[in-house]
Each structure stands twice: as C-alpha cells, then as structure tokens.
C-alpha cells in the first residue's frame, strides 16, 4: 500500500514536470523524465515510501523550476546553433509559460513581430488597394482619437501618409522586426543567466 502511494506520488510529480516540459522534443522529454525517476529511486535507496519520495522530490525542486532549468538550458544550446528570428521567436515561446519574464518577453515579441507584419503588409498592399491601405486616423464613438494601420473601408477614417506609407511602412517593418529579434535574444540570454545562477 505504502509502495503504491509512493509510486503514485512520484508519478504525479513527473506528470507535473512533463506538463511544463512541453517546449522540448518528445524524445528529450522522455529522457528527462526517465532520468528524474531514476534519480528519485537512487535517492530513496530501496526505502520506497511516501516520506522518502517526498524528501527526494523536494531536493530536486518544484516541477516548474525543474522544467524551467531544463528548457532554458536547451534553448540556450539551440541558440548557439542558430539565432534566426524564427528560432529566437520559437525559443521565447518555449519559455513563455515558465516564468513571469518569459510571458512578458513572449507578449512583447508577439506585438513587435505583429506590428512589423502590419507595416509590411500595408506597404505592399498600397499600390493595389490605393484607397483602402494606409495609416488611418479616426474618432471612435466616445470621441477618442485612434490611429491604426492596414486596410479599411470605414468612411470616417482619414488617411494620413498617402503614398509615403510604402517607404515608411517598409522601413518601420525592418526596424521593428530587428528590434524585436534583438529583444528576444537579450531576453533569452537573461533567462539563461538566471537559470544558471540557480546552481
């Protein structure tokens, strides 16, 4: 009975770690969980009871913390192979759920690349949809002034850049994408340093 309870306790812990490891490839997740299980079994040294398993798990760390150092280490290793914007965005996404800063970095990256895409699409669409594509200023029903970019049919919207949206939009897209990429790299390095500092 005690052995079953200890087994259930260990399985629950590993399932929680598994949930936080979802940013890693499946084979790596299986390997990590198997190693953690082996570690706990070594630690209890044959005395497979709930208190011993609990103590061993406590020394390993919380599921989120164990997952965070594993995923961060993997992300940093991946970055040494490639720092392409796509790789950086994917890496930031992997760490998004593992810390508050990770979530912040992901949101900023999402907004940054989203804005860059909006400028790019608008600039490219302008020659084909001259009256609909651009940067627009309009008052909403409450009277507040709003600025938006993209395609619109709204009759109350007033376009402000005209043809200039093409060079300005292209330049803004490049600058925003570059800044977002640099911010992603900075964030990943910062989170990597924090994870290594945990040792």
């Amino acid at each position: 009975m005690s052995k079953d309870a200890a087994q259930a306790h260990l399985d629950t812990y590993l399932a929680q770690v598994h949930r936080h490891l979802r940013g890693l490839p499946d084979a790596e997740v299986r390997e990590t969980l198997a190693e953690l299980r082996s570690h706990v079994l070594d630690k209890v040294a044959g005395d497979f009871t709930v208190p011993r398993v609990e103590a061993a798990i406590a020394e390993l760390g919380s599921p989120r913390e164990v997952a965070r150092v594993n995923v961060t280490e993997r992300v940093i290793a991946d970055l040494e192979e490639s720092r392409s914007p796509l790789r950086v965005l994917r890496s930031v996404g992997r760490l998004a759920s593992l810390s508050l800063y990770g979530t912040f970095a992901f949101l900023v990256s999402f907004l940054g690349y989203g804005s860059a895409a909006a400028f790019l699409v608008t600039a490219l669409a302008k020659p084909f949809f001259w009256d609909k594509a651009g940067m627009w200023v309009y008052r909403d029903p409450t009277g507040d002034l709003n600025v938006s970019i993209g395609l619109t049919d709204a009759p109350q919207a007033h376009e402000v850049l005209g043809g200039w949206i093409i060079p300005i939009g292209l330049a803004a897209a490049v600058v925003l994408a570059w800044l977002t990429w640099r911010f992603g790299l900075f964030s990943l390095r910062l989170m990597g340093r924090r994870a290594r500092r945990a040792r």
């Binding site: 990590t32 190693e35 953690l36 570690h39 020394e59 390993l60 760390g61 913390e65 164990v66 150092v69 594993n70 961060t72 280490e73 993997r74 940093i76 290793a77 994870a195 945990a198 040792r199």
Partner: peptide
C-alpha cells in the same frame, strides 16, 4: 552542494 535538479541540464549541455 548544488540544487539536485540543476545537475542534469548541465550534463545535457556538456553532452551537446
């Protein structure tokens, strides 16, 4: 004496 959960990521990095 290091937190036990941190040794495996370090070993994985050395493996990489």
């Amino acid at each position: 004496s290091i937190p036990e959960g941190t040794i495996y990521p370090l070993l994985n990095r050395m493996k990489t």
